[in-house]
Structure formats: structure tokens, C-alpha cells
């Protein structure tokens, strides 16, 4: 009985530890980043998150009257509003670091935060 449980428990524990490690290692440091806004996989805007775009909002429109409003305050960015039923991206709240993009699934909009120097450097940190 115990032998039979060994494999399932082992796999589960290993995968859980791996994920926890990935989350801890993948957490980037607090510094100035840039938010890249993508729609349908194409970059449509860049918002610097170094305080210079404080208070800026941009409106992204799409098919069938889709409308998303993106807001920057200080060094953070959020989806202020979205014309979709689930509002998941709005509930995601403020973001200021890489590796946690704001995603609007129905309108195919992604706000990805990366290093300011068009950077892959943020990935290395």
C-alpha cells in the first residue's frame, strides 16, 4: 500500500517544490521597468514605469466595440477598465515587475513588464 503511494506522492512533491522554487527564483527586483502593451501579439504602446508617465491613461479599442483603459500611476500599471464580462484583468490590480503580465483573454491584450533597455536583461535578474 505504502509502496503504491510512493510514486504519486513523489511526483506531486517534486512538481510542487519545482514550482515553488521557480516562483521564488523568478521574482525580479524592484527597479524601473517599462510596460509593453500588446494586442493580438503586436506591440501597440510602451509606458515607462519610472514615474515619468505618472497619471497617464491609454485606451485600446478592438473588434466589436472592445475597449480597455490602461492606467499608469507612479511606477505601477493597471487595467483600469475593460468592456468584457469577466473583468479578470481589472481584478488583477496594479503591477510593477516583470514575470506577472496583466492579461485580457477575451480582447487578446497583454501588458508585459520588461527591463527599460528593450530588455531581455530583466529575465536574467
Amino acid at each position: 500500500m505504502i509502496k503504491k503511494l510512493l510514486i504519486p506522492i513523489g511526483i506531486t512533491a517534486a512538481a510542487a517544490l519545482g514550482c515553488a522554487a521557480a516562483i521564488i527564483i523568478g521574482k525580479p527586483p524592484a527597479q524601473s521597468y517599462t510596460a509593453y502593451v500588446y494586442q493580438n501579439g503586436k506591440e501597440i504602446a510602451r509606458l515607462p514605469l519610472d514615474g515619468s508617465a505618472d497619471g497617464k491613461t491609454i485606451t485600446v479599442t478592438g473588434e466589436d466595440g472592445a475597449e480597455n483603459i490602461i492606467e499608469v500611476t507612479g511606477k505601477k500599471v493597471q487595467m483600469k477598465s475593460a468592456s468584457c464580462p469577466d473583468q479578470l484583468c481589472v481584478k488583477m490590480g496594479w503591477r510593477d515587475r516583470p514575470n506577472s503580465p496583466i492579461v485580457c483573454l477575451p480582447h487578446k491584450i497583454v501588458i508585459d513588464i520588461k527591463g527599460t533597455s528593450d530588455g531581455t536583461d530583466a529575465e536574467i535578474n
Partner: peptide, 23 residues
């Protein structure tokens, strides 16, 4: 599916969280 439909690998950053959540 999200990565393919939105043509971005950025969403894969959530994979570890979602694996833990799925567990």
C-alpha cells in the same frame, strides 16, 4: 492556448502558479 491565441510567451510566467493552483 492563451500563449498561442495571443501570440505571446509572456503568459507562461504564470505557469508555476497555475501548476500549484491546479494541484
Amino acid at each position: 492556448a492563451a500563449a498561442v491565441l495571443m501570440q505571446t510567451s509572456a503568459v507562461l510566467a504564470y505557469l508555476p502558479y497555475l501548476i500549484l493552483g491546479g494541484m
